[in-house]
Amino acid sequence: MFRRSERARQPGRCVAIRLDGEVVNVPDTLSVAAAVLHVHGWRGYRRHLDGTPRAPLCLMGVCQECLITIDGLPNRQGCLEPVREGMVIERQGDDPHG
């Protein structure tokens, strides 16, 4: 997991997102992928079509390992979408999407 440093500039603004059904507050500067790594870490992030577990690799829009369901739309690039208040995020950890 990735925790927020005590050295972070304060005060940080947060937004509430619904991640796998649970409402959590995360810093508003995060991408969706970064928010998931912050809250849950890399375990259970995504399952590849071949059944193997995968998680974000590059976080800069290249590798496509951060695919995730955002507001009902599957396979979004989680590293390129900033978190927004009320955003509904579901990891694709069990159910591989096309």
């Binding site: 375990r43 974000p56 690799l57």
Partner: peptide
């Protein structure tokens, strides 16, 4: 290298810049 828990150093630095995130 495809295992969760393997990431690019650049990605870790992005987390640091984006919200001061550090590995637990």
């Amino acid at each position: 290298w495809q295992l969760p828990g393997v990431m690019y150093a650049g990605a870790a630095q992005i987390l640091l810049k984006q919200a001061a995130l550090l590995p637990s």
